[in-house]
Design a protein around this nucleic acid. Structure first.
Length: 293
DNA sequence: TAAGCAATAT
DNA sequence: AATATTGCTT
């Protein structure tokens, strides 16, 4: 039912994935290169973040994904991450020996799609193509939905239960109501296409990353749903969607913050939140034991 | 008017 | 469980 799996010419897809590896430690560089090649990826390595940035700028479309160490002499891995996110929108995986929550948090906040802890094994690398794949799926979805924006907006405003003329007074409910003529793709029989029903936004990793990117671009203290929405440039999103997500995001961050404070001793607790703790539910693997307040 | 927050609804 | 909506406050 979903597309994506039916990619026709992408039979060999995961193979040949173009990976750029950045690490100042030549040993790790070698190891990673070897492992990645074993996964039949196409590997480029470099030991400087600035060098990586040059490579990426040189051929904007020459790589599919970046794996970067966090600690590097010439440039902070986070800085690199930031540049990549802003300039070419590639998935970036961060890696580090340091699994401290605040660092992981920083990586996440800056838009890393994954955060791997060294030592890294094949196990972790075999599946990294998923980030590229996910991105492609959603690019397709974005384009598709672009044609339907108006219809979606129609539905949003039309099927509201505020028909009784209460909320409609605010004349800024866009020009949706005006256009009833052109775009004769569908007849105006008021048959709301059932395939586009509930329109609940699902915050995929990609969408979330876009969100995070926007937040960082604005600055953490100045953010508001409106600004984020504008920066994200995702046509079908509403301000309310973003507001809701922002609210959740903040809760999530403060939760991490708390855990981070409470920690510091104990043992080596959990060590990574790379995969699981992220997608729709950034965080919370245990039940809800947090003060409802 | 935009935003945040918490409760509550879907 | 995740997201939407609402009502109240700033």
């Amino acid at each position: 039912m979903e597309n994506g799996f039916s990619s026709p010419r992408n039979d060999a897809f995961p193979a040949g994935l173009r990976v750029l590896v950045v690490d100042d430690d030549p040993t790790w560089l070698k190891i990673l290169e070897k492992m990645l090649k074993k996964c039949s990826y196409e590997v480029t390595t470099c030991c400087l973040a600035t060098e990586a940035l040059d490579l990426l700028r040189e051929r904007k479309d020459g790589y599919d994904i970046v794996i970067s160490d966090v600690n590097m002499p010439d440039m902070d891995g986070f800085k690199l991450l930031e540049h990549v996110g802003l300039e070419m929108d590639l998935p970036v995986i961060m890696m580090s020996v340091d699994g401290e929550t605040s660092r992981v948090m920083k990586g996440v906040q800056h838009g890393a799609c994954d955060y791997l802890l060294k030592p890294i094994r094949m196990k972790e690398l075999r599946n990294i193509w998923q980030h590229v794949f996910r991105k492609r799926i959603h690019e397709v979805r974005d384009i598709e939905s672009f044609e339907c924006i108006e219809d979606i907006q129609m539905m949003r405003n039309g099927s509201d239960r505020y028909e009784d003329g209460h909320l409609l007074s605010g004349g800024d409910l866009t020009s949706v109501r005006k256009r009833k003529d052109f775009e004769n793709k569908y007849d105006d029989k008021d048959f709301v296409d059932p395939s586009t029903k509930k329109v609940r936004v699902v915050w995929t990793v990609d969408l979330h990353q876009k969100f995070v990117k926007a937040v960082n671009q604005i600055g953490f203290d100045k953010v508001g749903p409106k600004k984020i929405l504008d920066l994200m440039n995702v046509p079908w999103l509403t301000r309310e969607n973003v507001a809701s997500h922002l609210q959740k995001y903040r809760l999530y961050l403060s939760r991490l913050q708390k855990e981070n404070d409470l920690k510091t001793f104990g043992g080596v607790k959990y060590s990574d939140m790379s995969q699981k703790d992220f997608p729709g539910s950034f965080g919370r693997s245990k039940p809800s034991q947090y003060a409802p307040k």
